[in-house]
């Protein structure tokens, strides 16, 4: 099968996956004890006299299958509903919060990969030597650390200590500094500040956006790099044991070429799967990191929606997340096909 028809098939499958996820989440939010779906539409200021009307308006008195039908009807018309905890329609919330999370995730993944992969390779090449032990200790320690503690420590050292000692410091939270926000203005095309400032050709905005990314992205990267490094190490060890590596050395290839061309590229295959999965789960939001670093993304939205019994928001968030997962998996499969000629679709 050709790649294009494979992608098409997967996209068609996506529709069914989303349908299934939607029905499931809808039923779960309705089945959860103590969550009256009307919570999504009222506040303490709403008089109880208005409740019957609100129930009527949102079809809450109808049987579940009728409710689902109304909901699907709206979705098919592009209306995912209004998420009160976000104070905006679901589609708008996704459009606003997703780019923030995407930016953080991409930065964290870049940092994570650029550290974890060399470490994994080093660890495998120096298997059971001190370099290997040191690497494993570092990776285990960093990925076992509590996110909030790590985040707080990074803030304390790289913002507070540097700043009170009059040294240049990194911003502790948020996505842009007040003075840059006040003095520079850019057009947001993508919602990714770094990309937008490049598109606008605004250097101060770019520098400021990047500096805001450092601490949260490092925090996320430190806790997520452990798995990548370990997978890299083990698949590297496995590949290094293959005959073609012996062969490549036997052929007289320089070690550098053997490692990079033959071992590394093949060892990347299992690593790609793991990186893809962790990328997808990061894309659905890292609640704690987003909270600590005041990074308004998917995680914050989901947490707020759950705390506020905002069923519309929860369903919307789940749909967006499911879409992300299916799409990222698709991309991983395509990357796989590029990396590995054995795979065809």
């Amino acid at each position: 099968m050709k790649l294009s028809s494979f992608i098409l098939r997967r996209l068609i499958l996506l529709v069914f996956v989303l349908f299934g996820v939607a029905v499931l989440v809808f039923l779960l939010t309705r089945a959860a004890p103590g969550i009256d779906p009307i919570f999504a539409y009222v506040t303490p200021n709403t008089p109880s006299s208005a409740y019957p009307v609100i129930r009527e308006q949102h079809h809450l008195n109808d049987p579940l299958y009728v409710q689902i039908w109304y909901w699907f009807w709206d979705v098919l018309h592009g209306d995912l509903g209004y998420s009160p905890s976000a104070g905006m329609p679901v589609s708008m919330a996704a459009a606003i919060f997703f780019p923030a999370t995407a930016e953080l995730t991409i930065a964290a993944t870049i940092i994570s990969l650029s550290v974890a992969i060399p470490l994994g390779i080093l660890s495998a090449l120096k298997s059971n030597k001190w370099q290997d032990h040191a690497t494993r200790l570092f990776v285990m320690t960093s990925s076992s650390m509590a996110v909030f503690w790590l985040g707080l420590m990074l803030q304390f050292v790289f913002f507070y200590l540097l700043r009170v000692n009059g040294l240049p410091s990194l911003p502790p939270a948020g996505r842009i500094s007040p003075d840059v926000l006040v003095s520079q203005s850019i057009t947001h095309y993508t919602g990714l500040n770094v990309l937008d400032s490049v598109l606008n050709g605004n250097l101060p905005y770019l520098v400021d956006s990047l500096s805001h990314l450092v601490l949260p992205a490092t925090t996320l990267a430190l806790v997520s790099m452990g798995l990548t490094a370990r997978i890299m190490r083990s698949s590297m060890l496995e590949v290094l044991g293959q005959d073609y590596i012996t062969m490549a050395r036997g052929k007289g290839l320089p070690e550098r070429v053997v490692i990079y061309k033959h071992a590394f590229k093949n060892a990347m295959l299992p690593t790609t799967t793991v990186v893809g999965l962790s990328f997808a789960s990061l894309l659905s939001g890292a609640v704690l990191t987003e909270k600590i670093f005041a990074w308004n993304g998917m995680g914050s939205w989901a947490a707020n929606a759950a705390l506020a019994n905002d069923t519309v928001g929860i369903i919307g968030f789940t749909l967006v997340t499911a879409t992300i997962f299916v799409c990222v998996n698709l991309v991983v499969d395509i990357v796989y096909a590029i990396l590995d000629p054995r795979i065809s679709y």
Partner: peptide, 22 residues
Amino acid sequence: GKVVIRELPDTNTRLLNIKSGA
């Protein structure tokens, strides 16, 4: 001239900011 109001849900971050003059 300008007022910037920003969301910082984490208490520790707000504490570090006010203590360091940010």
